[in-house]
């Protein structure tokens, strides 16, 4: 029987798992241990609901409600001096509980502190764009849409950014295989010749880099290559390739190790 593979997470799985293994945790500390973070958290808590907050690896992580994101970032930018949105993206938890986790990495240059603002949304929901607050979110949100299919409300140009505009599927979803799906495999062929050409072209020619490891005619016959379809007899002539003309060509001397000089001073 074929081994069962979950379709909602087709990424690489650990070959060996110990069922009694309890993974250690990266230590988390209370927000109160850091004065700056505690003050920031109090300011945010005064106006918005904060579900969870802790410090991990010197950065504060807070969980908020999805609809509060614009307000929280505006407060952080205007009153708490978190003037830069370094990064934002999503994490795919669809296999676990059908949600996405969205994180916003904030930086305050005056306080030298970084806060990660996070929330969860359900599959199919959109986030509020923060592009009006931070222009950097313009491209980040487009990238998130491209990679996960999460749309941002009120975004000026919600289009794919890295993948081609007519691509199907969102590559960073856990359900998207590493080597791409069928659409990805046939993208060029479909686009240039049309779907009906798939059969005529076939998978071998489609991928020019394809190496059939069982092909003993052309694979691993360096120096003794033969055309496809030739009967291998074992006494093929050597077709050696000369990369240097014997005796050199005009203006170019043949390299010999003895005649070469080593330059010690590159700025000679």
């Amino acid at each position: 029987m074929r081994a069962y593979t979950p379709k909602d997470d087709v990424q690489a799985k650990a070959y060996y798992t110990d069922r009694y293994y309890v993974a250690p945790q990266v230590p988390k500390s209370e927000v109160e241990t850091d004065e700056v973070f505690a003050a920031d958290l109090a300011a945010i808590k005064a106006r918005f609901e904060v579900k969870e907050a802790y410090i991990q690896v010197e950065q504060m992580v807070i969980f908020i409600n999805p609809h509060d994101i614009y307000g929280v970032l505006e407060l952080m930018r205007d009153e708490l001096a978190y003037t830069q949105l370094s990064e934002m993206s999503a994490i795919d938890w669809l296999a676990k509980d059908n949600t996405f986790e969205i994180f916003y990495q904030m930086l305050s240059m005056t306080k030298r502190k970084r806060i990660r603002v996070k929330f969860f949304i359900n599959n199919g929901e959109a986030v509020d764009s923060v592009e009006k607050l931070f222009r950097s979110a313009d491209w980040s949100e487009r990238e998130m849409f491209d990679m996960f299919g999460i749309e941002a409300n009120n975004h000026p140009f919600m289009k794919r950014i890295l993948m081609p505009y007519d691509w199907q599927g969102h590559p960073l979803l856990k359900s998207y295989p590493l080597e791409g799906d069928e659409f990805a495999a046939w993208y060029e062929v479909d686009k240039i010749y049309g779907k009906e050409a798939r059969e005529a072209i076939g998978p071998e020619i489609r991928d020019t880099a394809r190496v059939d490891r069982y092909d003993s005619e052309r694979f691993a016959r360096l120096g003794f290559e033969v055309p496809k379809g030739t009967k291998i007899t074992g006494d093929e002539p050597r077709n050696s390739q000369e990369y240097q003309e014997e005796g050199g060509v005009f203006l170019i001397k043949k390299y010999t190790k003895e005649a070469s000089t080593i330059v010690d001073d590159p700025q000679r």
């Binding site: 993974a23 250690p24 945790q25 990266v26 991990q56 990495q105 990660r116």
Partner: peptide, 8 residues
């Protein structure tokens, strides 16, 4: 270990 980190 289980956790997350952002390192600039």
């Amino acid at each position: 270990p289980v956790g997350e980190v952002y390192v600039p």
